[in-house]
Design a protein around this nucleic acid. Structure first.
Lengths: 185, 185
DNA sequence: GCCCTCATGTAAATAGTTACATGATTCA
DNA sequence: TGAATCATGTAACTATTTACATGAGGGC
């Protein structure tokens, strides 16, 4: 079976939901997959073209009143096979998460403690904002979604975000404390 | 001041250590920055060329007995300025960490619970291996490094890795438990 | 002689973003 | 009429990896 890139699999996955057009896919990404997967239109439309070429989906134009025409992509059985097959493959390796704050911190002896503190405080703020967003999303999933099959898995991914973000916030606090102690010396 | 990409700043940072050549930089990355920054030779050498062109460093050939010649790159004061300036800029945004396991989990209702369990167990194993690696690196830093200025910052980045990896392991355990409960229903 | 490590580099392919171009509908 | 949202798409650029090419020196 031919291999596709992760972006293609992400799109195939989204096509299993009610989201069927390029525009819908982008909306879905920005709302639901935002914290662990993002892509731009520049990738979505060419990928959809490939997906149709390889017969993983068929496209049909749909027009509804008062809205521009829309291309709806529907998975074929071949497309579903490809998706299922990918789901079953184990993860080759944990992604090397590039992290700018760690990179800066690694070389922080070239700047004042004060600057490093600012850097960390700013980062901590961003993490706290993100954490709050997760809580909000969680609430809305629990409120509006009936306990369908998807719900559990969606909550898993949110839980991952919450746990790792919380750990990162605690790390910021711990590091800031240590910097404070160093200054006090 | 001209802007460079993160890779260039990473290289400038490494050039402040004893690592001065393209080969050294790669070694350093693979050993010390491995869990949050990786680059290939295909990026290192072209970047070094640009760094010299922009006079952020000068290059000098050095030969030592029994070893091939080596190009040593030494930061200029301009190079140090550029590095320091970058260090002081706050992080624009938390990186959207693409995460394949979350992507698969998100669409896991299209596979059996058994497959999902395997996926998570495999991932948990990888996380545990990574955690052990962090402990090992931490020990070696504490043992072999005198408590120089760098040490504290290096331990910060390791601590980040340890904390977030631990949170991810706990997440795996929690998710596996929930899947188990679901199966028992 | 052969393999491993040291050492530098390029070319091609892949991945991904940003900016641009276009045009319909809705609402103020 | 002008801005906002809906909708599709491409071109250019940037980033990054992989595969390749080359060659010296050391140890078996």
């Amino acid at each position: 079976m031919k291999n596709y890139n992760h972006t293609t699999y992400a799109i195939l996955g989204i096509l299993t939901t009610e989201c069927k057009s390029g525009y819908d896919i982008k909306q879905f990404m920005d709302q639901s997959l935002n914290h662990f997967w993002k892509i731009s239109y520049g990738q979505i439309y060419p990928s959809l073209k490939l997906i149709v070429q390889d017969e993983l989906a068929i496209v049909q134009s749909s027009s509804s009143e008062g809205k521009p025409d829309k291309n709806e992509y529907h998975l074929t059985s071949k497309g579903i096979e490809v998706l299922k097959n990918w789901l079953e493959q184990p993860i080759e390796q944990i992604p090397a998460q590039r992290n700018e704050i760690l990179l800066k911190l690694f070389f922080s002896r070239y700047q004042s403690s004060k600057s490093t503190v600012s850097l960390l405080e700013n980062y901590k703020q961003k993490l706290e904002d993100r954490y709050k967003t997760f809580i909000t999303i969680e609430q809305s999933i629990r409120n509006f979604k009936d306990t369908g099959e998807d719900t559990m898995y969606w909550l898993f991914t949110l839980d991952y975000g919450k746990r790792t973000t919380k750990a990162a916030i605690e790390w910021c606090e711990s590091s800031l404390e240590q910097l404070e102690m160093k200054k006090g010396e």
